[in-house]
Computed example of a mutant assay.
Amino acid sequence: MSRLLVCLDYTVRGLLGKATDNFCEDGQLIEKTTYDHVTRERLDRILAMIQGSHQKALVMYSNLDLKSQEAYERAVQGVIRPMNKSPMLIAGIRCLHFAPPEFLLEVQCMHETQQQLRRLVHEIGLELKTTAVCMQVRRTRDGFFGLDDALLRTQWDLHSIQDAIQTAAPRVARELRKNLSLMSGHQQQLPSAGQPWASRVQAPL
Rank of each mutant, 00 (worst) to 15 (best):
R45Y: 08
D26S: 11
A71V: 09
Q108Y: 09
S184P: 01
H54Q: 15
M49W: 00
E25G: 05
F98T: 09
M60P: 00
I80K: 04
M183A: 08
P191I: 02
A91Q: 09
G17S: 05
Q195S: 05
S68L: 04
L47S: 00
S199M: 00
I46S: 13
Q187A: 09
E127Q: 15
R118D: 01
L190Y: 02
C7Q: 11
E127M: 14
Q162P: 00
L182M: 14
Y72G: 03
G185M: 05
V121D: 00
R174K: 14
K67S: 10
I93S: 02
D163N: 12
D9E: 14
V201S: 00
A71R: 06
Q108W: 11
L128P: 09
V172L: 14
F145R: 15
G185T: 01
C134D: 02
V76L: 14
E112V: 12
L66I: 15
Q77E: 10
Q116W: 01
R174C: 11
R139Q: 08
Q69F: 03
I80A: 08
V59I: 13
L190I: 05
G52N: 13
V201A: 05
Q195M: 10
Q114K: 13
C24R: 13
L152N: 12
R40V: 04
C95Y: 01
N179H: 09
F103L: 13
E123K: 13
E106Y: 10
S62P: 06
C109A: 14
K178I: 00
C134S: 10
R118H: 02
T154A: 15
Q108H: 14
Q202C: 13
G194D: 11
D149S: 13
F98M: 04
Q189H: 15
P100L: 07
H37D: 07
R200H: 09
R139L: 08
L29W: 03
G78L: 11
M135E: 14
Q195L: 11
G27K: 02
I165F: 03
A164N: 05
V107H: 11
L16V: 04
F98K: 02
T39D: 02
G27F: 00
V79Y: 01
S2Q: 06
R45T: 11
R200P: 00
S192H: 08
